[in-house]
Nucleic acid binder design. Structure first.
Lengths: 319, 319
DNA sequence: ATCCTTTATGAGCATATGCTCATGCTGTGG
DNA sequence: CCACAGCATGAGCATATGCTCATAAAGGAT
């Protein structure tokens, strides 16, 4: 195992020397070639060898390094298109200010595009905070479409109406979904979905160039409960059946599989369709969201993630 | 002075991100540009900034045989506790970048210790460069103490204030010595040394777990001359009396014996006390330092050495 | 010694990088 | 509100780098 031949050792030593001259001494490969008396190409190979053999260790001395590293690990573990980790405030690891900033930056990327883009949105506090961070822009060529019903069951507007406040800020054509979040029956849901305008919106959503959703957890402060879409006893039942979280109101278990529950059958939201080319960002952070986020990643309900350092660490610790 | 404006911090953060993507993530600058949403040139600038701000630390992990051999020979010849030889750049054998890197690595060893350590420092460019290579750490349990006065004779701060910049980086308790390097008279020196705080510092220094000093040479570019502590005629006189170098301002001859000169009597630095258990590192390299280093080793003014290949060879050639 | 396999080498090219310069933007003081 | 200094930006170019491929050298088996 550790039996390197003499010539290999020699070669490694040359590689070390070349690597040193390159990275520490800031020589060009031509200079190294001269000094070690080899051709430029060989010098290049030696430098590459030094790197691939791990003789050269690079490290970044900045708080961000940890975040970048976590992002990379999450990306490879869950096969994500993108993963953005923001530093967390140790005093308040659930704070969403950082997330909002980063989220708005990602959002801005798409809005800046010359090509007309279709952006789809779920709902929730984190998303709302992202929108609030957006600068005013003029983007009449883009389309903004809602994935979830934007009415309460009594017909009043939903408290986190992402699509409207967003469109207001960036002047894009927008499509709020004129439905309650939860239909009162499966039949009602089907009826709604067959309406021409609703059908149109659902199709748009399916083709969105990028999607942003929040991730809700189950528990006493679950958004579905707090916002009055579910009653305590309904929530309890879901939890007993293994529910750990929800994305655009679709409730899923620890593996990220949608629950076969009567409530899920009445969810009026756009169906979840995640492929590997169009990013579907989940935005969420906080200790109580860890299982939900982990499950969503596991079940590929999202393929991109924006969270914070604290949460990222916990997600990676989940088996 | 550590008050960076918000936009500067933001810029540094971007630089860190770019540096990470470039060196750790092996992205091209084009890819970085895309990911950070800036132009390719800006990405290039960010990477360069990360390097120049010292956010990127490179190190070589390979025992280069030649260096190991030189180190071994020096160690046995001069009975050293430790000896570190770094490869030299044939084109610039006096370059201190390599030394600095290695020095900071040694330093880091001590800083990483759980046990509270007392570290003592001389002054000089080489030491300063070591400090600059150190990563930011939190070491409130260690103590950093200066061996030499950190004022110029007019009371202004010394240009290479090792202890303060070091403590700044590692957050340790530190003791700069509130004295001029050279007292104006023996009496003044004695008065200073009897001051309670100064006495305390001198005691701390005596018990230091590890000591790092630069090694100065005599000659037209002698640090004592360049930094204005000695006048040309004083230097000439010292040289005539056999001076070849200095360590924390104590001037010594070819055998490493302190000169019995009026100047040495006025040196306000901590007395040199080298035993065989606590390392006292000399850090220096370059052709014109060879005699000084050799003498310091001979006279046991240091018991550990960090230098480069080129210098090490010349030291061994001295009779 | 000869032939064959394996590995190293350098030419040439496509791409990446670093740098300079002209331009435009921000922000400050009149 | 305007003028101007200072700084950030992106185009363009010279240079450095990484990679592929054809060829040469080295080593091994017969």
């Amino acid at each position: 195992m550790n039996t390197k031949s003499k010539s290999e050792l020699k070669r490694l030593e040359d590689a070390a020397r070349a690597g040193w001259l390159y990275y520490v001494g800031k020589n060009t490969q031509d200079e190294i070639a001269q000094k070690l008396n080899v051709s430029r190409q060989s010098a290049q190979r030696l430098v590459a060898l030094a790197v691939s053999e791990g003789l050269i260790k690079v490290r970044l001395d900045h708080p961000i390094a940890q975040c970048m590293d976590l992002a990379e690990r999450l990306k490879s573990k869950f096969d994500l298109i993108d993963c953005e980790i923001v530093p967390s405030d140790p005093a308040d690891p659930s704070a969403i200010t950082g997330l909002a900033q980063r989220g708005s930056r990602v959002l801005e990327q798409y809005l800046k595009s010359e090509q007309p883009q279709t952006l789809a949105f779920g709902t929730g506090r984190a998303l709302k905070a992202c929108i609030d961070e957006l600068p005013a822009m003029k983007c009449p060529h883009h389309q903004i479409v809602s994935l979830v019903g934007t009415m309460m069951s009594d017909g009043s507007a939903s408290p986190y109406d992402i699509v409207v406040s967003m469109a207001d800020r960036v002047k894009s054509k927008h499509y709020p979904m004129p439905l309650p979040v939860l239909a009162s029956s499966v039949e009602e849901k089907n009826t709604f979905h067959q309406l021409q305008p609703v059908n149109n919106i659902l199709n748009l959503a399916k083709q969105a160039d990028v999607t942003f959703v929040g991730i809700g957890h189950m528990g006493p402060r679950s958004p579905l409960l707090v916002d009055g879409f579910l009653k305590q006893n309904e929530l309890d039942e879901l939890t007993q059946n293994g529910a750990v979280g929800e994305v655009i109101s679709w409730i899923f278990n620890e593996q990220g599989q949608l629950l076969d529950s009567s409530i899920n059958h009445r969810v009026a939201s756009s169906p979840i369709s995640v492929n590997s080319t169009k990013p579907v960002y989940g935005i969420a952070a906080g200790e109580n969201k860890v299982s939900a986020i982990h499950a969503a990643l596991q079940g590929k309900l999202i393929n991109s993630l924006i969270t914070n350092e604290f949460t990222a660490e916990l997600i990676l610790k989940q088996n």
